[in-house]
Design a protein around this nucleic acid. Structure first.
Length: 291
DNA sequence: AAACTTAGCAACCGCATCTCA
DNA sequence: GTGAGATGCGGTTGCTAAGTT
């Protein structure tokens, strides 16, 4: 029985003792030879599992338990637009974040967005109470992934930039014109104290009782089912969002305060294609500090 | 207070790529 | 050149805490 147990591969949550063993292994041999941990009988975990645990939780200097700051959010959004779902690559621009962190962050964000989309697409259910429940998170089944992803970014950025000023996405001129709100230190306990977030300073108009989409909005929503949606919109591709080193240094940017957002190289121009009342009825999103 | 929903996170799985004998 | 094992990556799942009804 004992021998049988030793053959078993343990799965599920890691115990503190297991973490200690893993840490000791890394101290001795470095972050490699993961499979030898099991073959030596140190842990009943696969090499893959050990590596994942180390990379995602035990590695030094991880920002565990710290929510994404507005700046980190911006970096993820920008780099996702440029690289696509290359989470590991994106994570290299975010000190202390893992690909898993980025992936989870993006996934949550997309779900939120999908809900907003669904809500906004059904004007008849403008009752907020109805909207909050019953809304199974829709997957973008009718919209090809790339389009859904792209649209996802943009939709929410528009909403969040108004709702919580998470970082950017008003056009540069507007940003320059905007009186800066008072800065508040993030109150998240484990976070980098240097990270500063804005208090919300935009207000989204409350939903109208009888919401009516403009003809432009109807046309736009109809396009969501069009597999060639992106083509319809014109030359919108990742390259357009490219930030390029001269304009943007994600590493330093994410370590600086939100005040330093001065390179609004964003998909703003794309919004020119959107009907102006497209987002009028969207409820404000909570600021990132409230997630 | 209980039931239900949602968001966030940790971990697993399968596939791709790399390394090395 | 090739095959096996190790490693890396992205997608997905399942659990839990918090919020809502």
């Amino acid at each position: 029985m004992e021998g049988f147990k030793k053959e078993e591969i343990r799965k599920g949550p890691w115990k503190v003792e297991e973490d200690e063993v893993l840490i000791n292994h890394v101290k001795k041999y470095g972050p490699r030879d993961w499979s030898s941990i099991r073959s030596k009988g140190l842990l009943q975990r696969t090499g893959k599992s050990c590596r994942l645990r180390w990379v995602n939780k035990l590695r030094p200097n991880l920002k565990n338990g710290c929510k994404f700051s507005a700046e980190e959010e911006k970096v993820v959004i920008d780099l996702q637009a440029e690289f696509g779902n290359k989470w590991a690559r994106i994570a290299t621009y975010l000190p202390g974040r893992t690909d898993n962190d980025v992936k989870n962050f993006w996934s949550s964000r997309q779900k939120r967005l999908a809900r907003i989309l669904q809500t906004s697409g059904t004007p008849s259910s403008s009752n907020p109470k109805q909207q909050k429940s019953k809304n199974k998170v829709p997957v973008f089944q009718d919209v090809p992934t790339s389009e859904a992803s792209m649209f996802g970014s943009l939709m929410e950025e528009e909403a969040s930039s108004k709702a919580c000023s998470s970082s950017y996405l008003e056009n540069p001129e507007q940003i320059r014109m905007m009186p800066l709100p008072p800065l508040v230190k993030s109150e998240l306990p484990d976070c980098d104290a240097n990270l500063v977030q804005y208090e919300p300073f935009f207000q989204i108009p409350q939903p109208q009782p009888d919401l009516v989409f403009s003809p432009e909005s109807h046309e736009f929503l109809a396009r969501l089912d069009d597999p060639y949606f992106v083509n319809v919109l014109g030359p919108v591709d990742a390259a357009q969002f490219s930030l390029g080193p001269p304009l943007f240094d994600p590493v330093s940017s994410c370590m600086n305060s939100a005040r330093d957002v001065k390179n609004p190289v964003t998909p703003d121009t794309l919004f020119d294609e959107f009907p102006p009342d497209m987002f009028d009825h969207i409820e404000p999103l909570p600021s990132p500090s409230e997630w």
